[in-house]
């Protein structure tokens, strides 16, 4: 199984355990798509945006002395986008509809981050 297939596998497992998650993507820190599940046409754009928010978030965290960045959560009227750092090597972005369980998402994301990190 290729590296990409293994990462896709990790995303599929996350979606299986948490079917609310509509789009799941892994991108490089400079915004290139590595793997995705359910993101459709928006995948490459979402990959770039995930890297942008992570880059800016890191910078903001530093400015306010919040330390290393763990996550960014964007909440709109209809749902969430949550972005998680996968070490220094990649970024995980997940979308969740309004009313979704953000706490559970964090737990599932932690597992996925660990799984993906093993492959990078």
């Amino acid at each position: 199984m290729s590296k990409q297939e293994k990462i896709e596998g990790a995303l599929s497992r996350l979606q299986r355990d948490m079917p609310d998650v509509r789009a799941a993507i892994v991108a490089s820190p400079d915004g290139l798509l590595i793997a995705e599940r359910g993101a459709g046409d928006a995948a490459t754009r979402l990959a770039a945006m995930a890297a942008t928010s992570l880059g800016l978030g890191r910078r903001i965290a530093k400015t306010v002395n919040a330390g290393d960045l763990n996550e960014i959560v964007i909440r709109g009227s209809d749902g969430y986008l949550a972005v998680f750092a996968i070490g220094e090597k990649a970024v995980l972005a997940l979308t969740l509809p309004e009313g979704g369980n953000l706490g559970l998402l964090r737990i599932e994301a932690e597992t996925a981050v660990r799984d993906v990190l093993e492959e990078l």
């Binding site: 820190p29 400079d30 942008t52 910078r59």
Partner: peptide, 20 residues
Amino acid sequence: VVSTEAPSSEGGKATTTVAL
């Protein structure tokens, strides 16, 4: 300068701007 650099996957240079 407030910069947002990430390691570049595209070569030619070490890092690239991802936000501003």
